[in-house]
Amino acid sequence: MRRWIKVAVTAAAVLGLGGYIAEPYARDWMAVGSACDGALPRDAVEQLRPESAQFTGGESQRIPGLGFYRCSLSFQGEQRWDVPLIGLAAYTGHDDQDRDLMTAFPDMHLSSHMVLSGGLPGIVDDLGVVRIVMPCPALGKDDEGRPRKMLVRFEPGEAWKRESEAVHRTAVSLANSASGKLGCGARPLSAPQKTASLDWKKRQRSAVPVERAAGTGCDWLARAGLARETGWRVMAEVNDSAPANSCELRGKETASGREPAMVFSAWYGDWGNRLTADDGNGERLPLTAVARCDGEAANFRIDAAKNTPGLAEADRPRLLKMFAEDQVRRRGCSGLRLY
């Protein structure tokens, strides 16, 4: 009898130790499974998680009357405080979308942005925030007759630069889930099998000589007649579904170590009107253009220093026109006007 008692005690101790060891993994499993109403892909989240971080849980909130949904997943930080790893906010209200998109281009600066891979309708700003814009056919039109859309803002944590594939898959899963939560009725997105790096420096190194611009999304630059001796290289951030596109030109390094550059930018949606208007009087800035795309404005702009080598002042309107015409053709827009 005593022998069986010893065996039982020993087995209980082993089981207890095993349960103690397994508990953090069980907590992680439950936290990821319950966060964002179960929409998080576990393997992608594992790639985004900081090393040895312990998940502490998640939360979600939906306010259908305001067209708002948010959710998050947190982990325990160094100070034993809960730190958000993944954060999502989705809006179907036009004003909410405009405010959020403007934060990607603050204070009229033409902030760097990357387009998502695989034709996904989104961009990534220089802080790693992903913004996806999806049409909402189930919601009809707003009070101004514009087709309703949903903006999804996704913050993937500090690993975003090195985990492009995980960022794309998580963003797609959350966007599809948010569409259902808000009654958007958008066609489900699919994550691309191959994704470009989200490291801005690596994207810059992938720029190609201007004569090889064909097939980059900035094809028009190959026939723009730019001086080859300037050594222009093209960095194309063009996606025919994204809310913003850009063609950036970088020249040879100067004696001061800086590269001259000019940027051709396109913003799709009425929110872009603010990026082409003079804050002082509200009139349009020179060297900008506007068209109509999907019931809203599309704005185009060229930004270059006055003494950009190899670029005459008279060339700027011509280049802006080529860029805007190419974008209008790609997106099926109409009514192009240049200023």
Rank of each mutant, 00 (worst) to 15 (best):
G87L: 09
Q47D: 13
L116M: 08
P64C: 07
P260Q: 05
V167P: 07
P317H: 05
G157Y: 09
T308P: 00
P137Q: 05
E229A: 13
E51N: 10
S112Q: 15
L120P: 04
L88E: 02
N245A: 06
I132N: 02
A255N: 12
N307K: 13
R258S: 13
A175Q: 06
T230I: 11
K306R: 10
R187S: 15
G295R: 09
F323V: 01
G145C: 09
R2M: 12
Q204E: 15
E253V: 13
S256K: 14
M102Y: 00
A266L: 05
R42A: 15
T195G: 02
R212K: 15
A53I: 08
H168G: 02
F323K: 02
S265H: 05
Q204K: 14
R329F: 06
G67V: 03
H113A: 04
D125H: 02
S72M: 07
Y20R: 10
G140W: 09
Q79L: 12
D199I: 08
D98N: 14
R49Y: 00
T56R: 04
E313N: 12
A236W: 06
A236G: 03
V290W: 10
G295L: 10
L319S: 03
R148I: 09
R318H: 07
C333V: 01
L40K: 04
C36W: 06
C218R: 03
V130Y: 01
L88C: 04
E229C: 02
A312N: 11
D219M: 05
R318S: 10
Y69H: 10
E155H: 11
A242C: 02
M108N: 15
Q54K: 14
L336T: 06
A305R: 10
G58V: 01
W29C: 00
A104G: 09
L338M: 15
C71P: 05
D100N: 11
T195Y: 09
A31H: 03
K141H: 12
V238P: 01
V210F: 12
A289I: 04
T254V: 01
I86P: 11
T195N: 07
A214G: 12
T92I: 04
L319Q: 03
P64T: 14
V263I: 11
D28N: 15
R153E: 08
L338F: 10
W200D: 14
A39V: 11
R292S: 15
K321M: 03
V133T: 02
A255I: 07
S112H: 13
V14W: 11
A314T: 13
D100A: 15
P121I: 01
P121H: 04
D96C: 04
P24H: 04
L85H: 08
K202A: 12
V167T: 08
Y339K: 14
S52W: 12
